[in-house]
Amino acid sequence: MLVNKAYKFRIYPNEEQKTLIAKTIGCSRFVFNHFLAQWNDIYKETGKPRCNRY
């Protein structure tokens, strides 16, 4: 029998932690958007998705 569980957590960061969280999320969003744009450029040029890792 498969049982799924979920937990919810609420955090109350102080001002310094709020700033650090915002910087971290902003940085990861920047990196994601950068590589998404790179992937879209390659797709437009070649017509097929391409990943350099494989």
Score class of each variant (00 low, 15 high):
residue 50 R to M: 13
residue 28 S to E: 15
residue 41 D to V: 07
residue 14 N to K: 07
residue 43 Y to K: 10
residue 28 S to T: 10
residue 45 E to A: 05
residue 42 I to C: 04
residue 48 K to V: 06
residue 34 H to E: 10
residue 39 W to N: 15
residue 26 G to D: 05
residue 16 E to P: 07
residue 47 G to E: 07
residue 27 C to Y: 15
residue 37 A to C: 01
residue 28 S to M: 15
residue 52 N to H: 04
residue 54 Y to K: 14
residue 12 Y to T: 05
residue 53 R to A: 11
residue 53 R to G: 05
residue 18 K to F: 06
residue 48 K to L: 02
residue 37 A to E: 09
residue 47 G to V: 03
residue 2 L to E: 10
residue 2 L to A: 04
residue 40 N to F: 06
residue 22 A to Y: 04
residue 52 N to P: 14
residue 39 W to Q: 09
residue 29 R to Y: 12
residue 36 L to Y: 06
residue 42 I to R: 09
residue 54 Y to W: 09
residue 3 V to N: 14
residue 15 E to L: 11
residue 44 K to W: 07
residue 45 E to V: 05
residue 35 F to H: 10
residue 53 R to I: 08
residue 54 Y to M: 09
residue 39 W to K: 12
residue 43 Y to E: 14
residue 32 F to M: 05
residue 9 F to L: 15
residue 29 R to V: 15
residue 44 K to N: 14
residue 34 H to K: 13
residue 38 Q to N: 10
residue 46 T to K: 03
residue 11 I to L: 10
residue 38 Q to D: 14
residue 54 Y to F: 15
residue 25 I to D: 00
residue 28 S to L: 11
residue 54 Y to T: 12
residue 18 K to Y: 02
residue 13 P to L: 02
residue 14 N to M: 03
residue 12 Y to W: 09
residue 41 D to E: 12
residue 44 K to H: 05
residue 6 A to E: 12
residue 41 D to A: 07
residue 3 V to A: 09
residue 38 Q to S: 14
residue 6 A to Y: 14
residue 24 T to R: 14
residue 21 I to K: 05
residue 31 V to C: 09
residue 28 S to R: 13
residue 6 A to R: 08
residue 34 H to V: 06
residue 5 K to H: 11
residue 54 Y to A: 04
residue 22 A to I: 01
residue 21 I to A: 01
residue 6 A to M: 11
residue 23 K to Y: 07
residue 33 N to I: 04
residue 10 R to G: 00
residue 19 T to Y: 07
residue 19 T to M: 13
residue 18 K to W: 03
residue 8 K to N: 08
residue 16 E to V: 11
residue 18 K to L: 13
residue 11 I to A: 03
residue 10 R to F: 14
residue 11 I to V: 14
residue 22 A to L: 10
residue 50 R to K: 15
residue 20 L to D: 13
residue 4 N to D: 13
residue 31 V to F: 15
residue 48 K to C: 08
residue 8 K to E: 14
residue 40 N to G: 00
residue 21 I to V: 03
residue 21 I to H: 01
residue 33 N to C: 08
residue 35 F to W: 13
